[in-house]
Write a protein that binds this DNA or RNA. Structure first.
Lengths: 216, 216
DNA sequence: ACTTTAACCGACCGGCCAGTCTGTAAAAAT
DNA sequence: ATTTTTACAGACTGGCCGGTCGGTTAAAGT
């Protein structure tokens, strides 16, 4: 009990500062010693708890990245209100944390995808898992939106999901260096513009039966 | 004359395979010796022509990346035809090379932005230059489109530019691992959808004088 | 009281890698 | 013909970094 508590506490500390440094400086540019120095721990402690640097990172993915992705980008859009509003608010909030230079786990993900792609297949497997979950979740959100009459039922749900993921990951890359707040604002405006274009078309629709109003 | 030719030829070869390897394996994961081995050249040759690995990379940016960006993402949209068509075709082609795993320099850029961001300010300066050029070019293309009546004159040109850059860089990240061809297709569909939403609105426009037809 | 084990320490090893330095062959200059 | 310069070759250095290994301490088990 107590021993596992101690164990967990130390591992948790290592993972938290590990993720922080990996995010800031990159996985390959962060040495295990960098992390240990931050915590005043030794190599022995590290390799007692983890098999390797790679194993360590995979545990970070499973324990921290996955959970945060859920709470920031997945759960917020699972309601039954207007799907497009949910997604808008969700992105708005995620990008706001980005403006304040906090850890934005959607972007951490895209950062790591870029870093490991073609270089470390084992880690990519885990990152791709997260991407798949995110995508599946967006797809079903769009389908729900179509069913509830918030989205035109002719739009391609998969397409919308891919487009949303793309633009989100892209804007995060662009926001890192130059005028994050202004870029966030412009991005969100255009996103709303795009969302308007996939709402059910009222009067000039080719199939009037597609729409049955905005139920609340 | 002859000597400078020889010099240029060797430097060119180094830069070309340098970019190739940096792109495939990342800057920090590619040693100078890796590049030299590929060319059967020695350390002496390398440090005779370049001051450092960093200097080498900056020259690659200036000589190869910038030029290719121009020819692939900038010049193709400088015409006076329908701006949205030009951009569509341009993205279509750039993504097609990506599907075939060739060097797509727009993505190389986003890749490097991710790799160097927060780690190497000196290199980031050069990469940000390219981003600014790309952005400025997209902005003026949109403004031209508004002037020529292909784009609604109420849209925010900067916003469109940021949105386009974001989504392009994002889709390239997503295309790297999973189903690139399918994702490209879906992305392009949604891009067209978005473009439709920023075309001049005909009948239900608040200001009918905004449109004067599709001049050719 | 003793043994065991969990948790951690820190010196050390081997490999890699950016950059240096000495040398050298051929071309160019004089 | 001699000197100088260009364009390399390749051995070497110093530092970093992932991982190992033989301790050590304190708590838990018996």
């Amino acid at each position: 009990m107590d021993k596992t508590l101690k164990r967990m506490a130390t591992m948790q500390r290592m993972q938290v500062t590990g993720l922080e440094l990996f995010y800031k400086k990159g996985y390959y540019n962060t040495s295990v010693d960098d992390i240990l120095k931050e915590l005043s721990l030794s190599k022995g402690a590290f390799y007692y708890h983890f098999d390797s640097k790679e194993d360590f990172f995979i545990q970070i993915i499973e324990n921290l990245l996955v959970r945060k992705m859920y709470s920031m980008l997945i759960e917020p859009i699972e309601g039954h209100e207007n799907t497009l509003d949910l997604i808008t608010n969700c992105f708005e909030e995620a990008l706001e944390t980005a403006v304040h230079n906090e850890l934005d786990f959607g972007f951490v993900l895209s950062n790591f995808v870029n870093e490991f792609n073609g270089k470390n297949e084992k880690i990519m497997v885990h990152l791709n898992d997260i991407l798949r979950i995110w995508e599946a979740n967006l797809v079903s959100a769009v389908q729900r939106g179509k069913f509830n009459g918030f989205i035109d039922r002719h739009v391609d749900s998969e397409g919308v999901a891919v487009f949303l993921m793309s633009s989100y990951m892209g804007i995060r890359t662009l926001m890192v260096e130059t005028a994050p707040s202004a870029r966030k604002y412009r991005f969100m405006s255009q996103l709303r513009q795009y969302f308007k274009s996939i709402e059910p078309k009222g009067e000039n629709s080719l199939n009037p039966n597609a729409v049955f109003g905005n139920v609340n």
